[in-house]
Write a protein that binds this DNA or RNA. Structure first.
Lengths: 343, 343
DNA sequence: TATTAGCACTCTACAACGAACAGTGCTAAT
DNA sequence: ATTAGCACTGTTCGTTGTAGAGTGCTAATA
């Protein structure tokens, strides 16, 4: 591809992203102050169309980018270092360091969605997969016990259950120690059934606690899908964009955002690899999201995947703004989350 | 209003609710197996129109209900005991009693939204307003402290903060006792600033803890709006209804659902009074929601307002199904939530 | 050989028009 | 009080026509 073609393609896509209107040769010669006529540009556009980067909505309409065109544009952006600066986001990001990871991520997503017209997405960590560091059990009431699970993210989950028989805090401490010793480094919610059953036999004194605890954990596990799900912010702004005039499409996208099984898995799988942080149109392999693009960035804590934040918008997304924004914010969140263990 | 008029009005509204099409005299004589002609029904319809219960979309179209018509219909439904039975909901509502109130309410809303094509709304309790029952502080790590606040709902909130200096669990217990003694019955998050400042002077030994704690509580308070907000489930199904063909209107409703300041206040104010659990169209006093109706029911725990669940849908809502459903579910949730203290 | 001007051509968007139709209001008869 | 009949009204939907944007091609030009 020649240099002039690249310039034209870039300008064409950038223009379409801004206007949502098919771009024609005339407009392009105006925008680029080229010393060529519209006819020349037309020829180049035709070449770019045969190359598969642009397409016409109908015979002799202006051109709009194909998915491949967007892909080229995005890769081009990432290559060049001339990313538009994302300034003064920090002031809005006064993240409360002691907040839990989940809350923090959601807060950040809310802030992020306020910075643009797209939907911010957070994938909160799957707590059922996180490795246990230590268990604390606290007697709250006569028979009410608070279980605190510290995990390898430096984060913690809690839940409450009711004892069948009275126990002292000392006894609970012992039980906590036993569980911690057995399960450190293991995913608590996933392994607890096996381990707790075993402990019932091993420590008949505390059999009752282990049994009840196991019961409650099992019950909690039925909430699994709830806890693993993604959260979204800023849908209302997004659906005001012209591409969402089409009700059918809007419906499709909202359905995926709400059911979120597909997106959850997609994000989970995508953030593992370093490349491909942008998903465009057909790359979703999902008809309902074919008109959308997704920019996603993982958030790690202590080297462990702690979730992800991202942006879902129309394919005609302001990539040059969103990509660095998401990157910067995720870096910052990561920084904050990691910090909170020392402070 | 005569008996026949009532029957016609009820049937007309019920029909419109089902079909979303203006109902004409011909259809009504078919539906009701009256021994009268369509002309007679037409006359009655005209009367009902002058009474303000029905209106025409245009000259000589069929009739659709006015807001007043819906209001009459709803009040009529509540009066008569012939509410359609809501069956077999229980099986879907295996509420985990030990879950926190907030999680429970959200879970229930999710289930509820699966039972219909409208949006389920939960108003979770404003934890900043809840009265404190007892404070527990647990040393998690060397300098990490978990604070557990039990409140008057039988529910609890937790947060973690970092100590500036090392403290033993015994010391923390003492601090917890001091705070509990001072603040029992008070809204913790609202009053803590004043009280903690005072405690800094009163117990110079622990001044540092009180100071740090106060700092953290203050920080947490900036999340206030986040915590008070409503949650919604099932938007995607709702926007597939014919009334949401209009993009402008869909946008408006989604905006209100997302910004949710208005709805939060509306629900808060409405659930205080025993009457008026149904809000119809203009009764919202909000243009954006003029095409919607809301059925809402409070959820109490220990006699204290613990939140609310409700349903937002088009004015053409299946009131005869939704009203008893919401009522039944909220009763049940209330039951579960209250139970969990004894079990 | 690369570029350009010019022109015919294609397709859309949009408004205007008309027919089909559903449902009414009115009147006169029962 | 009810009804049959009919004229009337306004919607909906498909058609048609026009204006306009933008292209592709060709022949001329540097």
């Amino acid at each position: 591809m020649e240099k002039r073609q690249k310039i034209i393609l870039k300008e064409a896509i950038a223009n379409y992203i801004q206007s949502a209107e098919p771009v024609g040769s005339k407009l392009l010669v105006e925008k680029l102050n080229f010393s060529v006529s519209s006819a020349t540009v037309r020829n180049e556009l035709k070449t770019l169309e045969t190359l598969g980067f642009l397409k016409q909505v109908y015979t002799s309409s202006g051109r709009i980018p194909t998915d491949e065109g967007y892909r080229w544009y995005v890769d081009f952006l990432e290559e060049s270092d001339t990313l538009s600066p994302v300034s003064a986001v920090n002031t809005q990001l006064e993240i409360i360091a002691v907040q839990k990871v989940k809350t923090t991520l959601n807060h950040v997503a809310k802030v992020m969605s306020s910075l643009m017209d797209y939907t911010a997405i957070v994938l909160t960590p799957d707590i059922y997969k996180m490795a246990l560091k230590v268990v604390h059990m606290v007697l709250l009431d006569l028979n009410k016990v608070l279980v605190v699970l510290l995990n390898n993210l430096g984060d913690n989950q809690e839940f409450v259950f009711n004892l069948r028989q009275r126990m002292s805090q000392d006894e609970l401490n012992k039980v906590s120690q036993i569980i911690t010793a057995k399960m450190e480094g293991m995913p608590f919610f996933e392994s607890s059934d096996l381990v707790l059953r075993h402990l019932v036999n091993e420590f008949p004194n505390y059999a009752s606690v282990f049994e009840v605890l196991n019961q409650e954990v099992e019950r909690l596990s039925s909430f699994h899908e709830t806890r693993e799900s993604i959260n979204v912010h800023g849908v209302s702004k997004m659906i005001q964009l012209p591409e969402f005039k089409n009700v059918e499409m809007t419906k499709n996208v909202l359905t995926e955002l709400e059911e979120n099984r597909f997106l959850t898995e997609l994000i989970s799988s995508h953030i593992c690899r370093e490349d491909g942080r942008v998903v465009i149109g057909k790359e979703f392999n999902n008809e309902k999201l074919e008109e959308c693009s997704l920019v996603i960035s993982p958030v790690k804590s202590r080297g462990v995947q702690a979730g992800a934040i991202g942006v879902l918008g129309p394919k005609r997304m302001k990539y040059s703004y969103v990509i660095p924004l998401v990157k910067q914010i995720s870096d910052q969140v990561q920084h904050y989350i990691s910090d909170r263990d020392d402070g």
